[in-house]
Every structure is written in C-alpha cells, then in structure tokens.
Write a protein that binds this DNA or RNA. Sequence first.
DNA 1: CCCGTCCAATACCCTTTGGGTATGACCAGC
DNA 2: GCTGGTCATACCCAAAGGGTATTGGACGGG
Lengths: 91, 91
Amino acid sequence: MSLVQLEYFVAIAEEGNIGRAAKRLHISQPPLSRQLRSLEAELGAELFTRSTRGVKLLPRGKQFLEHARRILASVEEAKRCLSLPSGATSS
Amino acid sequence: MSLVQLEYFVAIAEEGNIGRAAKRLHISQPPLSRQLRSLEAELGAELFTRSTRGVKLLPRGKQFLEHARRILASVEEAKRCLSLPSGATSS
DNA sequence: CCCGTCCAATACCCTTTGGGTATGACCAGC
DNA sequence: GCTGGTCATACCCAAAGGGTATTGGACGGG
C-alpha cells in the first residue's frame, strides 16, 4: 500500500467512475484501474462492485475510505507542520 | 513522500545510525541514505544532523517523527479493520 | 435487432524508481 | 598516521508505474 494508492482510491470512490477519476488525477484509465486492483489484492478484499455503469463502494470500501482520508489528512498535517518555522504540534 | 520512506525515517531515527537502520530494514545502506535525502529534499528541511558518529534528530525531525508514527499507526489500523469481517470503526 | 456509446480490463511498451555493489571522503581514537 | 566506523557518491540492474491500443460487456436509441 502506498499513499498514492490511497489518493487514487479516494478519487475513484468520490467519482464512482475510474475513467473520470483518472482524468481528475491526470493519469490515464488503465494504470488507475490496475492500481486499484493492486490495492484490493494487497488488502485481500474487494472495495468496489464493478459494472458497466461504473464502480460502487462496498461496505468494506466505505469503511476503508474513512481510514484513507484520515491517513491522507495526517500526511498533509505533517507536511504543513514542517513548513512552519518552529514547533507547534497541532494534533 | 511514501509510506516506505516514513518507515525508513522512523527506523533511522530509532537507530540513530543509517547503517544499523538499513540492516534492520533488510536493505543496504546507500539506498537508505538516498531515500532519507530524498525525503528531506521533498520536505524542504533537513531532519537529522550528520556526523561521523551517526545521525541525530533535529528538532524538526523529532516533531516529524511523531507525525510519521501516527501516520503509520493509522495505516496499520486501516489494514486491521479490513481483516475483520464486518464494520467496527475503532477510531 | 443493431449500432453507437460508455464502462472496466488486458496486452504491450517505455520511462522512472528503487535497491545492490564498489568506492570515496571524513572524522575519531589509538 | 593508521584503523575502524560513519555517511555520501557512482554506477548498474531489476521492478514498478504510466502511456497507448485494444478487447469485452452492458446499456440506450433508432
């Protein structure tokens, strides 16, 4: 699992459509589809149901989405803290 | 920034020595040194002071260490939750 | 019923990234 | 000034990641 994969996952979840998410992420659809597959494989769980209409979060996926957002938020916070001159541990 | 880089950073911080951290991580010293440099470059801040005795966390580094640990813990929690059969949002 | 459209998945290629080995530069202790 | 230990650099190779082209399947309009 990588942070990039989590960003990809969140984008797909929000778009409900791999192609649109790819456009939003400025990459093409096939690599994004592969990254999602790879993430699911590593987690040992499908996160979406696929159909010809797009993708839809499974209950597991919804739960994981919360975690993913929390992780990415922590990363942003970590970066932000380093931008500040001195210590100011917000969380 | 990647999760692997954060794991590397934590290991180096805990060992205070890139070579020992590399051994603990089962990689060799030069790639680890490079990854640390790369992380520092991306963050735009040095995290350690280097010397011939090893490396030592700077104040910024100590602060970032807390964030890194929190992030990695969140990742572990996310994985753990997916291993469980059904919903049980701990945090 | 067929055709066009939209979706994800697959096949294949190429660039980039990441790790390995060998080596250098630097400092401390003796 | 030699030795041992440290991080950094140079170079190589394998693996990962992204791109294009294409396939297969489902839906809707005619």
